[in-house]
């Protein structure tokens, strides 16, 4: 019997270490109550000098989001439609009103990604890539911030791993699922996406097409802490106040500065 206990202990230790996570879980109260069924991927802002990074990154997003259980709008079709409609510039799209953008496509939510850094690092022992991404999901119906995650990884090309056990495990699975040529850069992007989207307590809850839909509340709890983001930088799409888009449109310098309500349904000016 003792042997069995030891075996059980070892195996559960393995099970736990395989999915080791930071103890600081985010608060999913807003996300769960918004209950988005669909996600619109908009063009990626690229702050790095790696010219192809934005398009490359865009191609790695639909698989992990769909596999998480969401309806993901056809990425290339959306990109082309936006370009036709004069919304080809990522910075412009990210700073545009979320609800109006979502209305164009009938989307429940929008994911904005910014590439903050994408740099090749060489040292004596290895060659790696340092990447720094910011992911933001906002509610398409009211523009509220639903979730935000920042990933700062150094991926060692020679060993093919990011050092983040979780990211590596899932990334390998996603690479396999997406049939990728597993080029270095795709691997890097997939690792970061996996760490951002899938990590318990940090990623996003399962969507309606997942078997885990609404049954993963332990991993993605509504713990009421109000901690929706772990970002250390400000996204182009998100300023500290989720209603900032609405407020910005109104001329500043009105008599009262701290009113909160009734600004949403009142302004429907025709911008075209």
């Amino acid at each position: 019997m003792n042997k069995i206990k030891i075996l059980a202990a070892i195996l559960s230790a393995i099970a736990l270490s395989a999915c080791a996570t930071a103890p600081d879980y985010k608060d999913f109260t807003t996300f769960i109550s918004a209950d988005p069924h669909s996600i619109l991927i908009v063009p990626v802002i690229n702050h790095s000098e790696e010219v192809e990074a934005a398009d490359l990154f865009l191609t790695t997003l639909p698989v992990p989001l769909s596999e998480k259980g969401y309806y993901v709008f056809p990425t290339n079709m959306v990109k082309k439609i936006m370009e036709e409609d004069g919304l080809g510039d990522p910075l412009l799209v990210h700073s545009a009103d979320t609800t109006r953008l979502a209305d164009l496509f009938g989307a429940d939510s929008i994911i904005y990604v910014e590439i903050l850094e994408w740099t090749n690092k060489y040292n004596v022992l290895s060659a790696g890539v340092q990447v720094h991404f910011l992911y933001t999901i906002k509610d398409g119906h009211d523009g509220k911030l639903l979730w935000q995650d920042e990933q700062n990884l150094i991926v060692d090309k020679s060993q093919g791993g990011s050092g983040n056990i979780f990211a590596d495990l899932i990334a390998t699975a996603i690479v396999a699922a997406s049939d990728s040529l597993s080029s270095d850069y795709t691997y890097v992007a997939n690792s970061a996406n996996a760490a951002a989207i899938y990590a318990p307590g940090q990623g996003i809850p399962a969507g309606p097409y997942s078997a885990l839909y609404k049954s993963d509340t332990k991993q993605f709890p509504a713990n009421g802490t109000g901690r929706i983001s772990d970002a250390t930088v400000l996204a182009a799409s998100y300023q500290a106040d989720p209603n900032i888009n609405m407020k910005n449109k109104e001329e500043k310098g009105d008599e009262n500065s701290e009113e909160t309500n009734s600004s949403e349904d009142s302004d429907q000016n025709n911008s075209n």
Binding site: T59, T60, P62, V63, S66, E67, G69, L169, I170, A173, I174, A176, A177, S178, D179, S180, L181, T186, Y209, S210
Partner: peptide
């Protein structure tokens, strides 16, 4: 990590 859909190399 079981894949729900058959992507047929879409990303690539």
């Amino acid at each position: 990590n079981k894949s729900m859909y058959n992507w047929g190399g879409y990303s690539n």
